[in-house]
Write a protein that binds this DNA or RNA. Structure first.
Lengths: 120, 120
DNA sequence: GTCGTACTTGACGTTTACGTCAACGTAAGG
DNA sequence: CCTTACGTTGACGTAAACGTCAAGTACGAC
């Protein structure tokens, strides 16, 4: 377990917390947790979401949807698709925002460099 | 004040909180706050930072640096520049991460669409 | 005058996402 | 057999970022 935590860059407390919140459901070998491929994937998704500032609730929504993607029910698929399109739109907005920000930062940096060469 | 809050999509409580944290320092007309151009700019930067999941501490670091950009002291400029490069690198990493995520999302969406056309 | 609205400070409450500590089990190594 | 390391549950603590009153001030409209 500590191994997985290290690999993902979190603490064991975090893994237990996520389990308590129902974000992952590792198998048990006796009382010990055994994280499978599916858990790894979910955890990576969750942590990526967190890096983007999503709450665990939002992360849960997404990973659950990914998991429910096998649902062949037409109605379910339509709902899922609609949600995915919303998410994609949000991500594109973030991309634009990020591009602007990066532009500004590099601009300021360029001005800095100018001043520095100016000063010798 | 409420006007500014509405414009920025935050509450007046948030503005007061940011002031208490030293993130903005609006002028006073009597006891009432008067937000100038500089405050607007700082607030926009801060809120953008928050959208990217930065803490207020990190936001403060950045806005303070932007403000200190006029500092002509060579040593200061070098420090600022180094920090800006770090930030730019981080932003680029985020861009890549975001691109991957968006790719995955659109992939899953595409699979959804396939299944749906398949089902009629 | 007083009503309504917007502002002020101050204090306490709340949610999120964990950290930390206690008390215990278990398997490996010397 | 004892220690060490890693695991377990449970309970409590905490930092960040506000929300939510409470109580008072200021100002224009009626």
């Amino acid at each position: 377990m500590g191994e997985l935590a290290d690999e993902l860059g979190v603490t064991t407390r975090t893994l237990r917390f996520y389990e308590a919140e129902g974000l992952v459901s590792p198998q048990r070998s006796g009382s010990n947790r055994v994280y499978g491929q599916r858990d790894h994937a979910r955890l990576r998704l969750i942590l990526r979401g967190r890096r983007f500032g999503m709450t665990l609730g939002e992360c849960r929504e997404i990973v659950d949807m990914y998991d429910g993607a096998e649902s062949s029910e037409q109605r379910q698929l339509q709902i899922l698709l609609a949600r995915l399109d919303e998410i994609a739109a949000d991500l594109r907005a973030r991309q634009a925002d990020l591009r602007r920000t990066l532009g500004e930062v590099t601009d300021v940096a360029a001005q800095c460099r100018d001043r520095l060469t100016e000063l010798g």
